[in-house]
Design a protein around this nucleic acid. Structure first.
Lengths: 197, 197, 197, 197
DNA sequence: TACTAATCGAGACGGTACGTCTGGTCTTGTC
DNA sequence: GACAAGACCAGACGTACCGTCTCGATTAGTA
């Protein structure tokens, strides 16, 4: 992808220092106060940045948060390249569960999902930049596992993903029960009868 | 259960008319505009009620919405008394899925779950008045099914509930995919290997 | 004057206890907080009386205050019957000045005069029940003094009263300078050349 | 005098347009409705200005009114420089009386004096910006007149000012009788015996 | 070395909703 | 019928936040 944004004429370039200060301030304030009670004025003041600068680069408070989250946590959920397909799938789910168990990652993530419920654009961005990635990867791993005879041919990958990730999100957003890698393992163990070829 | 709340001292009694007008207005405006963009002033004006009266009886905009939702939809999810335990469980899940498929019920419900992410009291109320009821009922049904030999005795009811309802909520809140009774059936079919004794 | 109000049909008679409690509470709260910050709710609560009872007997918060002031201070400004006309006039002015020097009397009085500036009915009531009485009495005393040769024939009583009482009220309401009987004496001394026949 | 207030830091400068619109709206609405019944919301709406902007620059509704009054009428009461001291004093009093006779000037002025009775800061501001100026000027003129032998040297300037202005304010605030330049003349004529050296 | 142009900080602006408070009125049950 | 209690409508209060808008001051690249 061509980074055409960097082809600019004369004039002062965007301050990387400001960008980072905003994202950091957003993360810190979110952890303290939650999405409501997190005002753009506060982020600006806390980052030593003018509101103008924030609105110049992000359309929405949620967009800032999205960047803040992506910036910090998105690269932590890449599945490792080693092991067979089923092992790698379990590993991916464990990583997401691990993320959901750490307050500093869980809080902005929960806030994003909540905000997405009444913000179509944010919902699309969230799916595009986080959810869809996991799903596509998982879907591919399941297909590979089927090919290798590790899973039955008639298995519906999407339904399996709904079940596994659904349980994680259900605890995260609805029941309030804790989510951690051990819980991910329990899920896989419970689903074992379905996975038997 | 003794309705001790009705034992009041002297003074004018609460206006039932106002209460219903507020809940109705809240439902209508929510459907039009979503939780943000739904102001207390608007609810008051639309209901022909003073803001004071709203704040007298509800601590929060979300608390109004909670009552509005409970008032309208809570009695629609009772499981029918007929059939064996497993059939009744499937029926319960289908009813919830049906609720999630109707915009008029889905919208306030999604708004409530979203608001609960940054409102501890609301989260507790939502669990107490909606989530916990379904879970307890489902848990009982699963236990009965195990007793009757319909399900294996080493099944963890909580994990099964997480899986089934998790998939529903995942589609509702995260993936945006549609939820309806047919999807509930597909879930039960997919889980069949686990249910075999 | 016929007390026709007391000719009532059957039913519970007005509670004298409530009436006094309201006036006392009004005086006390006024001294603490001034006219604004003195709510009818507060008076009712402080007097152990319902708001209804207040509105049944007084049309306005200011009307309560008026009664509270009259009830307490109005009989203190009667001129004594002894001495010649000029002496009695000076005595009357000294009494009013004395009233203005005592915080417990000055505060409700100032509040009343202030409220009367944007309340026609209160202004009329205040003049009728307090101001006009002093003016009429003073006017009579000046006329008597002129008859007795104590004052020149061409003196305009109204203008003299404006000058004397004007100075008192000017200090009370405008300049903030203290008002006391000694100041009343200074006024009379300064006006002596005018009083010489 | 250095206008140090104009030395501002960075940032958008205060809008002179908004300032004038607020003061004009305040004057107009006051004339229509009196101080109570004059809400900040109304001033804002009528001026095409946000409430925020009003509260940013004025602490109180009365403070707005003060500026509105000063802005419009303060320069109309300068005594003319011609004539002897006594003539100039009479001229000053006549100007104030003239002001008190015009509804558009009287109304905000009366409202200010009334509000000052329960607002210490406003009272101080009113004295500093209006009352004290007249008094100082009058005091100087009386002193000059005494020097020139126009007035007796044992005359107490403050007492004389209390008498003259007291009569004006008494009519304005207490008796409700009209005040106009002719009345000012009558006061000076009545006080003539005191002025004779 | 200028000139140009986009950035930055600061902060005022119009709008809108908040949650609280009063003023008056109305509706109960009790005396 | 007067009363205490207290719910009710109406509407102003002063605060907070949003997203936009001037300012003057930087800070590059271009001429």
């Amino acid at each position: 992808m061509v980074e055409s944004k960097d082809v600019r004429g004369p004039g002062r370039p965007r301050s990387e220092r400001s960008r980072r200060a905003v994202l950091t301030a957003a993360r810190e304030l979110l952890t303290d106060r939650g999405l409501p009670g997190l005002s753009v004025d506060d982020i600006a003041a806390h980052a030593g940045v003018s509101k103008n600068t924030i609105y110049r680069w992000w359309p929405t408070k949620a967009a800032v948060l999205m960047d803040a989250f992506t910036d910090a946590a998105a690269d932590r959920i890449e599945a490792p390249a080693d092991g067979d397909a089923l092992t790698r799938l379990r590993s991916q789910v464990r990583r997401v569960a691990q993320l959901m168990s750490e307050p500093d990652a869980r809080r902005p993530f929960v806030a994003l999902v909540a905000a997405a419920q009444h913000d179509t654009e944010l919902a699309a961005a969230l799916r595009e930049r986080f959810i869809a990635g996991r799903r596509a990867e998982a879907s591919g791993l399941i297909a590979t596992a089927i090919e290798h005879g590790q899973l039955p041919h008639d298995l519906d990958p999407d339904l399996i993903i709904d079940l596994i990730y659904g349980a994680l999100y259900y605890r995260l957003l609805v029941s309030g029960a804790p989510v951690d890698p051990a819980y991910a393992d329990r899920l896989f163990d419970a689903l074992a009868p379905i996975f038997r070829t």
